[in-house]
Amino acid sequence: MKFGVIVFPGSNCDHDCYHAAKHVFGHEASYVWHKETELKGLDCVIVPGGFSYGDYLRAGAVAKNSPVMEEVVRFASGGGLVIGICNGFQVLTEAGLLPGALMKNRDLKFICEDITLRVENDSSPFTSCYEEGEVVSMPIANADGNYYADQETLKMIEGEGRVAFRYSTPAGLITPEANPNGSVGNIAGVFNKEKNVLGLMPHPERAIEPELGPTGGLGVFESIIDIIS
């Protein structure tokens, strides 16, 4: 299968995503510069982390008006798999592909640490290789990871099973202490209605090689590869 990794000025996790797809999982991967207007032959689009356009104005705000984003929206509308990681999640909410918004972390700090997440829904193209309720570890690295949605939106997301991951204790409990950044409902990742778009703040692409730490991100890539192959 073929992954495409979108590159904005200021993206800095694009190489990690490319490395994951190509070298760790042995699939085809290519970079897609943000000025491109075609997404030909791709099975999955990765919108990577970083600081697109320096996060000026708001994280992800300027990137959403990049030429390639129109094509990403079209790709997603046609059922294509799109995953936004960290800044990529922010870009996808700004672009309207995912509900809610990412705000400044509760404690105003950039947080870079391994955290634990509970898998909330294992029936999606991104989570089918996990078990519902499974606790996995991945790193977070962000200053604007505080997920916000108003009550009505939240009710819809919860009702439609659109929460992919929640910050939890290692035992899988959803507590305020396990919430690193103030995200509403401890939400770390959400799907669109059709579940072919996922956005998450933790970095699955940095959690796939045991030499480097936790491997909780393996399931995300395995699930994508499983459904496409």
């Binding site: 104005l57 708001r58 705000a61 300027v62 008006n65 909410t93 700004e94 509900p99 809610g100 918004a101 705000m103 916000y148 949605a149 108003d150 939106t153």
Partner: peptide, 9 residues
Amino acid sequence: EKLLANTVM
């Protein structure tokens, strides 16, 4: 609406 504000928040 298009850029300067994110009306979600």
